[in-house]
């Protein structure tokens, strides 16, 4: 192995380890996204519903989560919650932290989507005499949710990149795999570069796909 320059055979030999890390990264992103969207929708609705104490709490919670670093939230769930009786495996901790963090963002995305619904939709539902819960579930939410899908998709890409933080709580995702391979061979150039390339390929491709879908959607309307 030459010490300067790029060693292709070493770079390729790191790939199996990196792919297993990438798999974990994608699984974490997948479950994190589901959690974020579900909790986000609930947070958004609770916040908007004007329920005395609860709505204020939801609002404060969203602010608090958005105002503090994900890394600290991750440490909090990983190191503090077990002392309070909630012990989770490292991977579950990571997914929970990602889900909770992005739920605060998803709540804001949903709110923006709901605010964007044309007033005529509300007026028409009122005129038709629909019960209020039915207006929400049958008229407003379906439109709002469809409208924010591209924004949510971009959020998932952001989450995908942010999963690299999970390496700091012993999860062997893509970045952790890269560091581990590098530390075994005392050479970080190839593994860490390949890690960057893999993140780039996945997130760039996904972003391009979203842009294309958005474009197609815009043409159809």
């Amino acid at each position: 192995m030459n010490s300067f320059g790029w060693d292709w055979s070493y770079a390729i030999s790191t790939l199996p380890d990196l792919f297993s890390g990438l798999k974990l990264t994608i699984i974490a992103t997948f479950f994190g996204s589901i959690l974020a969207v579900l909790i986000g929708l609930v947070l958004c609705l609770v916040r908007m519903a004007q329920i005395p104490v609860l709505s204020g709490l939801a609002s404060f919670w969203i602010q608090l989560i958005r105002g503090t670093p994900l890394l600290i939230q991750l440490y909090f769930i990983f190191y503090v919650l077990p002392g309070w009786g909630l012990s989770l495996a490292a991977f579950a901790t990571g997914v929970l932290a990602l889900g909770m963090y992005y739920a605060a963002y998803a709540a804001e995305i949903f709110r923006a989507g709901i605010e964007e619904i044309a007033p005529g939709q509300w007026e028409a539902s009122l005129t038709l005499g629909m019960p209020i819960p039915r207006v929400w579930t049958g008229v407003i939410l379906p439109q709002a949710i469809v409208a924010v899908i591209p924004v949510l998709a971009n959020m998932v890409i952001a989450m995908f990149k942010e999963t690299a933080l999970l390496s700091s709580i012993t999860i062997m995702e893509l970045l952790a795999q890269g560091k581990s391979v590098g530390s075994i061979h005392f050479r970080y150039v190839e593994p860490l570069t390949m890690v960057g390339v893999l993140y780039f390929i996945v997130s760039y491709t996904a972003a391009r796909m979203i842009r294309r879908l958005e474009g197609r959607h815009a043409i159809q309307n």
Partner: peptide, 21 residues
């Protein structure tokens, strides 16, 4: 390039890889 990959990866890259060069 900078938007396409993770900021932490970029940080580690600058921290661990650039010294090799």
């Amino acid at each position: 390039l900078f938007r396409g990959s993770s900021s932490l990866v970029q940080l580690f890259w600058v921290f661990y890889v650039l010294p090799f060069f």
